[in-house]
Design a protein around this nucleic acid. Structure first.
Lengths: 341, 341
DNA sequence: CCTCGTACATGAAACGTTTCATGCGATGGA
DNA sequence: TCCATCGCATGAAACGTTTCATGTACGAGG
């Protein structure tokens, strides 16, 4: 059914190797032969079999990116950044979605390893040593951690300083006079979540403010944000936080919806700060204050490191790039009046 | 570097074929041999080479989905629906992003064809005959069109009735008393865009209302929505539309931002209806009326059709599934008072 | 004791490329 | 005229699987 090089060769009346040469080094074959071969290719609708090619070459030309959540705009922006670089270099990106599940991540990595991908950009579900990833690295498959500062010696990483981000958010709220602050996010095992919380805690502690009230969510999504806010709303007004710092914008948007549904005004009754500054944050019912991350930049840089390692593994030195987040203040945390003093 | 079956065989002291049997039909090999082989695999960190396997098998087990825009939540939801089905069947999904560009789509299809993917879900950039896709179908690669009603005889399709969707939106606005209605979206060549416009035009014509003022955008995104709205705002108040129907929610959210920035109130000065009802529509600054599509369902159904065709090409009959959209009315099109009468 | 069947292991062939050493005819210089 | 060179085409080997026909040993049934 699918024509092979052999049939093309037969049809063009040349040898098998010649066809391959036309495909890979057209310059070394004479113009007339080349023409005959190209015609044969055309007539037969020949399409190179990449499996065979890879089998011979030992490696493919596709770069995989495994994200925690395809439906989070943060990750799709990272993907687009990576795509820009990889495609600019003539490669191809495939996106895999772990959905935050360890087993799905596992399966994806299995398959990608079997496919001998050229390299891997990954935001792993769990932190700590990754025997899987280590093995891929040992096998010579470059791995770049995205949005993880892990700083392991055997791979590059690209991340944004989440501790600082958490700090920025908490400082901002503290300056606005908030004393009872809640943190919504989870699972707690997620590095991003833990770091953001840690930064917030540190900032509050330095100011002798009480530690944040933590509401853990099973995942970071709009619906878990809603649920968490529902819970917060049930607290007696005297203990209810006056501000919520959410681990990402999806959660914050969900919280915003739930708070509004319960008749609470943002920011007057409760202030809200999100994280990621996704495109939809600024357009929310109450424009959302958020911690901005250089999303596409993250993807671009990760891809560059990957390609660098891939093309010249000898001289490559693993690097750990850390970007700085920025606070974007919008209405959701803008008080009409200061609360203190 | 990468251990092969041969080395495993050597280490376990068995033949090459036996190792393969352990991998593929463990039941036909004696328990003790199996154990020895598995140990060898473990010790060597052997990972099957999928290229070789595919080369032999002639086909891979991955399904590809090529979407118009990864950063549009509509498509990520479709992707998740497809993932659920394919992974449930033991397969794997890779996502490719054409970004609406014909050349990127072309490149992706090239590579996917070379990789002999098991099947392809695709929302093509352009309509009409697709020699590329036809060729893949001829080659025996099942192709399912997503969000296209194309109705071609040689492939399945899954779509939502966009003409009806456009109609619903226009009827809704007409009932609210609007007479000057704008349509924002593009490129005009995009089937979805054209259909939605056509539906709206038909509905207005039936009511003897003037045809919509069309503002074409180069792509469907938040920023083009902003630009389009900026343009509409410059119209003299007497000719300015009182309602805008946007070809999707991204555009609508952009438009909403721009209108608000210009001091226009939605819906009082200008009503707004979007399309897709993405998760962020309900949480927008002014909750957005929109046309809801069964997004995940779309992906699930497409994947089911694909797998069906893939597993039993003989008895497969191409089908064209069309879902019905629904109108979700929210504040962005809710007038305090009727305009007519 | 022979035969047959069963339970397993074996080795070679095939999948479609790429690469590389080799072959061969023509051209140019000595 | 002969040799070196060059330009181009060739065919075989190799990549790592899977499959299948074949082989072998062993226990059971006659």
């Amino acid at each position: 059914m699918a024509a092979s090089i052999k049939e093309v060769a037969q049809r063009a009346g040349v040898s098998l190797g010649t066809v391959s040469n036309v495909l890979n080094r057209p310059d070394i074959v004479s113009p007339q032969t080349r023409k005959r071969v190209l015609e044969a290719i055309e007539e037969l609708g020949f399409v190179r079999n990449d499996s065979a090619r890879q089998l011979r070459a030992g490696r493919s030309r596709t770069v995989a990116i495994v994200v925690l959540d395809v439906s989070n705009p943060f990750f799709t922006d990272v993907v687009r950044g990576a795509e820009a670089v990889v495609e600019g270099a003539g490669g191809m990106v495939v996106v895999c979605n772990s959905g935050g599940g360890a087993s799905r991540e596992h399966r994806h990595l299995d398959v990608l390893e079997e496919q001998r991908v050229q390299g891997l950009l990954v935001t792993p579900v769990s932190d700590g040593r990754q025997p899987r990833l280590d093995r891929m690295v040992k096998r010579g498959i470059p791995v770049v951690l995205v949005d993880r500062g892990a700083g392991l010696a055997n791979q590059c990483s690209v991340a944004v300083d989440d501790v600082l981000g958490g700090r920025l958010a908490a400082e901002h709220l503290a300056e606005r006079g908030h004393r009872r602050i809640a943190f919504v996010g989870g699972p707690a095992g997620l590095r991003q979540v833990a770091d953001r919380l840690a930064g917030a805690e540190a900032a509050l502690a330095e100011r002798d403010l009480p530690a944040p009230h933590v509401v853990e969510t099973p995942v970071l999504s709009v619906s878990t944000g809603r649920t968490a806010a529902d819970e917060i709303v049930t607290l007696p007004a005297s203990r209810r936080p006056t501000a919520i710092f959410c681990a990402n914008d999806l959660v914050a948007l969900g919280a915003l919806q739930a708070l509004t549904a319960h008749g609470l005004k943002v920011p007057d009754d409760i202030a809200l700060v999100g994280y990621d500054d996704i495109e939809f944050a600024a357009g929310a019912a109450v424009p959302l204050s958020s911690i901005r991350q250089p999303r596409e930049q993250l993807g671009r840089t990760a891809a560059q490191l990957l390609l660098e390692e891939s093309t010249d593994p000898e001289h490559h030195e693993h690097r750990h790039v850390v970007f700085q987040p920025e606070l974007a203040v919008r209405q959701s945390s803008e008080h009409k009046r200061r609360r203190t003093r």
